[in-house]
């Protein structure tokens, strides 16, 4: 994130303790830059939705502050909320309203004058044009999800929150959603999404935040995260098992696994090893190799190891 540009979302010391005494958020500090796609990862109940709901005005924070485009979400809630669109996790829509009516309702609710052209274009972008006069209850789950996105975008927000946007969504809609997020980014809209499909964060996000038990345990550029925390391994499947790593192979820092059937080298950061020399050496030692694999850990593995470390 470029530190010279004022963040579009600025969170300082934000906490939430529910009346039951349950702590949903420990002090959270976070800056989100204008136009970035930020993915908030975390297991169920980690505090992702609480964080989003506080920023959007649905949950009152216990302490701390949040500004949206420079407006304090409590003292200047009108200006702050006018900038924000929210697609909540649950499919909560009216039933008897038409698609057209409900999207225009949202636009009015957020203080914008009617703009039929904009709403028509929005429905077209979301493949909802032919459903505009349909009652919401007659739509499929995927279509309802599209309606909720249309509602969230109805007032042309500059910041969009997508809470688990692709949970229970078919492949086509998921792809459309990803395209939508990219096109929003091109228009300068900041997108903050929560997900536990890590593949999604891997695909779309510029930066990733990991939240666990109400604590933001890591915020990092996705690329850096993959590079520093991702493990690369070279696995050599041996023709016949070894009982120990031969001392001649010491410089390559190999480990024996799979009952002596595999030799594994774990790449440390960016330092790569001379694989050709290793293979040559093994050949001179008459160690037969049946197969060779390299393996790079995904964001998912990184995430799982992070969360379990902080458990």
């Amino acid at each position: 994130m470029n530190p010279d540009i004022a963040p579009v979302i600025r969170i300082r010391g934000l906490t939430k303790r529910y009346a039951s005494g349950a702590v949903a958020l420990k002090p959270v500090d976070l800056d989100i830059a204008k136009g970035e796609i930020f993915a908030l990862l975390g297991p169920n109940g980690a505090g992702k939705s609480t964080l989003i709901n506080i920023i959007c005005g649905i949950v009152t924070p216990s302490s701390g502050s949040v500004t949206a485009d420079g407006h304090d979400i409590q003292r200047e809630y009108r200006a702050a909320r006018a900038k924000i669109g929210l697609v909540p996790q649950e499919l909560t829509t009216d039933s008897f309203e038409t698609v057209w009516a409900t999207v225009n309702f949202s636009r009015g609710l957020f203080g914008k004058p009617a703009n039929p052209d904009y709403v028509a274009r929005l429905l077209r972008d979301l493949s909802l044009s032919d459903k505009r006069n349909a009652r919401i209850m007659s739509l499929s789950g995927g279509m309802k999800r599209r309606v909720m996105i249309a509602k969230a975008l109805s007032h042309e927000p500059e910041i969009l929150f997508l809470d688990e946007p692709t949970a229970g969504v078919d492949v086509e809609l998921r792809r459309d959603m990803w395209n939508l997020v990219r096109s929003l980014r091109e228009r300068g809209v900041t997108v903050i999404l929560t997900t536990h499909y890590i593949e999604e964060a891997e695909e779309m996000a510029d930066r990733v935040g990991v939240i666990n038990k109400g604590e933001l345990i890591l915020v990092e550029e996705k690329r850096t995260l993959m590079k520093t925390l991702g493990k690369r391994q070279l696995v050599l499947h041996l023709a016949s098992p070894l009982s120990a790593v031969p001392p001649e192979l010491g410089p390559w820092r190999l480990e024996l696994s799979a009952g002596g059937h595999e030799l594994v080298h774990t790449v440390d950061g960016d330092r790569s090893i001379d694989v050709a020399a290793l293979l040559e050496r093994m050949s001179s030692l008459s160690i037969g190799i049946r197969d060779l694999q390299t393996h790079q850990s995904s964001l998912e593995e990184i995430f799982v190891s992070l969360v379990s470390r902080h458990a």
Partner: peptide, 18 residues
């Protein structure tokens, strides 16, 4: 733009929508 929240004193579009 800080303080522009005070400019929108009554959200008549919102009231009308509900």
């Amino acid at each position: 733009r800080a303080g522009s929240g005070k400019r929108l004193d009554f959200n008549h579009h919102g009231v009308w929508a509900i």
